[in-house]
Design a protein around this nucleic acid. Sequence first.
DNA 1: TCTCACAGCTAGCACGTGCAAGTGGCCGTG
DNA 2: CACGGCCACTTGCACGTGCTAGCTGTGAGA
Lengths: 332, 332
Amino acid sequence: MGTKAGKRVTAADVARSLGLSRATVGFVLNGTTEQRISEATRDRVLAEAARLGYRPHTAAQALRRGSSRLILLIIPDWPVDFSVSKCVEEASHTLEEAGYSLVTQTHHPVGTARPLWELLDPEVVVGFAPFTPDDVTAMQGCGVTKIVPGLEPNPSTPDPLGLHDGPRLQVEHLRARGHERLGFAATSDSRVSGLVESRLAAAQEAAAASGLPPLVVRTVDGSPDAAGQAVQDWLRGDVTGVVAYNDDSAARVIGAAIRAGRDVPADLAVIGHDDSPYTALFVPSISSIRIDYAGLGRHLAELALHAATGQPLSGDGVDAATAVVARESTAS
Amino acid sequence: MGTKAGKRVTAADVARSLGLSRATVGFVLNGTTEQRISEATRDRVLAEAARLGYRPHTAAQALRRGSSRLILLIIPDWPVDFSVSKCVEEASHTLEEAGYSLVTQTHHPVGTARPLWELLDPEVVVGFAPFTPDDVTAMQGCGVTKIVPGLEPNPSTPDPLGLHDGPRLQVEHLRARGHERLGFAATSDSRVSGLVESRLAAAQEAAAASGLPPLVVRTVDGSPDAAGQAVQDWLRGDVTGVVAYNDDSAARVIGAAIRAGRDVPADLAVIGHDDSPYTALFVPSISSIRIDYAGLGRHLAELALHAATGQPLSGDGVDAATAVVARESTAS
DNA sequence: TCTCACAGCTAGCACGTGCAAGTGGCCGTG
DNA sequence: CACGGCCACTTGCACGTGCTAGCTGTGAGA
């Protein structure tokens, strides 16, 4: 179909084929309003571009306009990938409508892979979690100036993703089922320590607000019987409900309780966080917190666009759709 | 530190700062062997480039040399993300040594997000699974000519990733534990139907090779009690061991068996596939197949480099490190 | 008929890079 | 001393695009 064999179709090809200048073609294809182009010419150009299968050369555009229109999302190496894809999909979609594209990279702290910001020069780098100072200086050294979150001198929201609601819902759910003394199942995985701290703090806050005593914190992984020990501690302390940092921790608690001959939820009710796909497969099935990943994706996209173009933030939080998914592990 | 304020450092800046021509700087930075450059000048250039913090402009390079040196890996929307990151990390590393960079995108068949190959114009697009004809023509329309796998007119390996060993190991593991009549737990998830077929075929082949009767195939999801029905069918048919398509299917089978008052593995032994992190958390813990994701990543990288540069394939398969992880669900 | 505004188009530069072709100086040889 | 060869470097083009400044033709007004 192409007039030239195997070569890329450029705007010059379209122009030549119509006997017009390349500039005219450029004006039409960019929809420039500075320059008036007659309707007839505009149509001819568009038709011919479509016929030849013209695609703008991204590298040339990036070079000329000095911006790649790329947004890089750094995904931490958390074991929550199953749901991140929803979030990314939604963020991509929102960004596309603004003419930007989203590229993701999973960031391994110990990994040796070169970060993509070195060679895509994205306009904005977005992360789920704040970046380390090292990462920030590395990015700045590569010309990345817009980093979200992590550069605001006076951050209005300490938690840029606004995910406080999950732990609160966990606590309130257990309390509604009659559990007053609660435990918190933490992980020793250092990759997510910040997230654990954040969720624990939110849970403690919710407990205090509900007039409950502070949660008894135990780590449920790391050593072979950490979970068993935690369960024993909790039961001795009359803890009847456990808020788990995530579904993995919840599964560990439940497994240890069953192996200790206890019944879940009769002896110990457990609720996880993130609503991993396998929570429904467990016996007993695990209650959890479903996060609105689509909303989170839109929120991330908005933050990125705000950084890129100064577009104002819509302001509606992302917590709205966070909800408890009640299953057997907290049945009353 | 920069001589100019806030602007990108170009090769011309380095040249000007040294009183040399831009070409000389270019030759040094590219390590061109065509053109001899004195050792002294070379050192001066490198030192000055480092001092000024010079970074080549990727878009300009891509424009000039006509290739982006990017390789796009399309990750299917399978629920196996947890381990893909290992694979990607390793592939990135291998590709970097060859001067290429890896960008990944999760591909949602129903998603509306624009595929990245439209705007990164990657040199090669690699996929875990063969692409659909639609995708292939879309890529070709965007100038992507090198697609792996899926373009070989006479494919020597029907399974480009060479993952036949897993199902064979599952069958042999159950057989070694004394199970002769086996079932196969499939999923109705259409996204992975090709993978299911492939694993089932490999399992049937292994059964035949071991002199076992064909596996009794049942789907264990889709309807609420599909797994319960499957378990009932198997037990009635004297099936004592189940090869599951993946760990999710295995978990469904085990859950259904327990809820039916059966014991796993005494009444029914089950082995999963992929060694998902949660297999160890189940009660009983789930035996599974660990795949060498690092090796798979290197293999993918090799395939990509082969397509990009014609570099020969090393030939050693990726199956070598595939292994059974024996847990409670198949204990004898 | 001449002028002038203006719609509609074109010439051409700049972006930063990779590399082919050219240029000047130095040295060895006849 | 002339000349060729070679080293070390420079000039300059091309990649495809976005966009500014300029150019041409037409019609209206004087």
